[in-house]
Design a protein around this nucleic acid. Structure first.
Lengths: 306, 306
DNA sequence: TATATTCATAAGTAAAACCTTATGATTTTC
DNA sequence: GAAAATCATAAGGTTTTACTTATGAATATA
């Protein structure tokens, strides 16, 4: 008669088995009674055995019917459960979030993620902190969904979105001669001093070099470090001046362990970008995360303007 | 696009997920590649989310895809398991066997069932021993599949099969005056003595009364008991003579604790019948049990004739 | 015994499911 | 850069599905 069991058959069967009646099942399913009879008959055809036996008005399950009853109940429930899980996925309340960020934004990103996680406890998180080079590699090999970085490379197929200012400032230890000047310090006088900078492949370093090139200058850096924390400490110790994203030194500025120097042309106006591969459809969760970040930054700016 | 998941979709999806390739899946399923694409696309339409994402040649599961993979694997396996169970049912190796027997055949039936159970260990057994009245009630209320009893009632819609002789014999305590006579004892001399019989609703009792009625006699029983064991003991104690199925006294005759009396017209030739309700389809297991019983009885007779 | 209830069956029909061939777009691989 | 591989899409056709209405048969109910 037929070749395969269908879910329709199981659904109708389950209702009949529950209701112990074809007619009642047909009403529950908003069908006519013959429609139910047919589904059951087809199922019996597939199985090769009767599933019900009539005793007068009463219908009873055969052994095979009992077997199919278990099957129908479990299968249909599993489908219902999966459907619910899928709805959670679709609404972004559950899922995998793969995020990679530049070293400089790590702390900001961590804070954002923690707050996002409170709203979406079911998410499974994959978080990578690395420098610009590493981020590009992750994007190319598709190991991450969203990246937060400085100016993204032009040669890759990317979708980018500028979402947050990233001012680069010059920092000095408290009491440095260039601090607290009335006027902005010139680049000339600035470069009398030693500098501690990030490695050449870092975004911060590249931003500085591009700015200097535009001014007709170049940089002979005295020290290189691959960690913002190390730079901050070194500057605080008096090893030299630093140029860093202001986001990395907010707490030190408040505590007074570091000071800003007002230099002509500074702060360098850079931005953070949300980046993803072009054409890559983000999971609903990732989409929500993006929306969340943008919203948060917006709120932050608004609060500053008040 | 669609309304419902189909098992076809899940089957195709599972293959694609396993093979990590549409083309390989299509070969494994003996389909063209577009056929696979379509099934997946329909499934995605039902789900409302993409299940795979392409990264160059490679295809990867999305979060939703992972969810559906679990679903497809579990559901399809459950169906396969159920199919196997159904095959066991169909071959009669598994199932419920509901059997009811007359008190008199209980020991014979027990032996048969035990041996049948050795061959079919997966069966679940429902065994009732009761008298004729009880058996008829069980049949009417459909609480049993097969009944073993004496002559079945005519007024019920039954399918019956005579399968085993059931001779009724007269028993006496050893040393009774009617024992070891040269000639068969006449009914006249027999009825000088007291009798111990089963209750009037029992098959054995009815058989005796019908025989006597044909001979123009009737019975004034001195004692009634509803258990064959009680009757045997009472006869052995000398309380009176008994008329019982020979099957109930085989061991006592061997031991010599009871003796047969050769009476004109005895043994009464009755039979045991296999009985089921007309039109009621037996489960494969019950069918096998019927076949088994008939075969065993056949073997038993053959061995007697050798 | 008439009536109501329950399931089975038949005929008819609109929709869908399922697959094929042909072809296109991308991406790897050589 | 050409060839090969992979998935997507379109068009077309046959089969199956899933109902419906109408009606019949068996059984319970009053």
């Amino acid at each position: 008669m037929n070749i395969n069991i269908t879910l329709r058959q199981l659904k109708v069967f389950r209702e009949v088995a529950r209701q112990q009646s074809f007619t009642r099942a047909s009403k529950a399913l908003f069908l006519t009674q013959p429609a139910v009879s047919m589904q059951i008959k087809q199922l019996e055809g597939v199985i090769g055995m009767p599933l019900f036996e009539k005793q007068g008005k009463q219908i009873n399950l055969t052994d095979a019917g009992e077997e199919i009853k278990v099957l129908s109940e479990t299968i249909l429930q599993q489908i219902e459960e999966t459907t619910q899980n899928l709805e959670l996925l679709a609404s972004g309340q559950q899922g995998k979030l793969r995020l990679a960020v530049a070293t400089t934004v790590a702390s900001v990103a961590t804070r954002l993620m923690a707050r996002f996680n409170e709203r979406h406890p079911a998410l499974s998180l994959h978080f990578i902190v690395t420098n610009r080079e590493g981020l590009i590699d992750l994007l190319e090999t598709n190991q991450t969904d969203i990246v937060i970085m400085g100016k993204p490379p032009e040669d890759l197929q990317l979708e980018t979105q500028e979402f947050m200012p990233n001012p680069l400032v010059v920092i000095a230890p408290p009491g440095h001669t260039l601090c607290n000047r009335q006027k902005a310090v010139s680049l000339n006088s600035l470069f009398q001093h030693n500098f501690i900078l990030r490695e050449p492949s870092s975004g911060t370093r590249r931003a500085i070099e591009r700015f200097l090139a535009a001014e007709g200058r170049s940089l002979e850096s005295s020290m290189e470090m691959n960690s913002n924390d190390a730079i901050k400490q070194s500057v605080a110790e008096g090893l030299g001046l630093g140029i860093v994203s202001i986001h990395t030194v907010t707490s030190e500025l408040e505590q007074g362990s570091l000071k800003l120097i007002d230099v002509t042309g500074f702060p360098l106006r850079r931005s953070w970008y949300l980046v993803q591969r072009k054409g890559r459809r983000l999971s609903p969760l990732s989409e929500r995360f993006k929306a969340y970040i943008i919203e948060e930054v917006q709120n932050f700016h608004n609060s500053l303007q008040v």
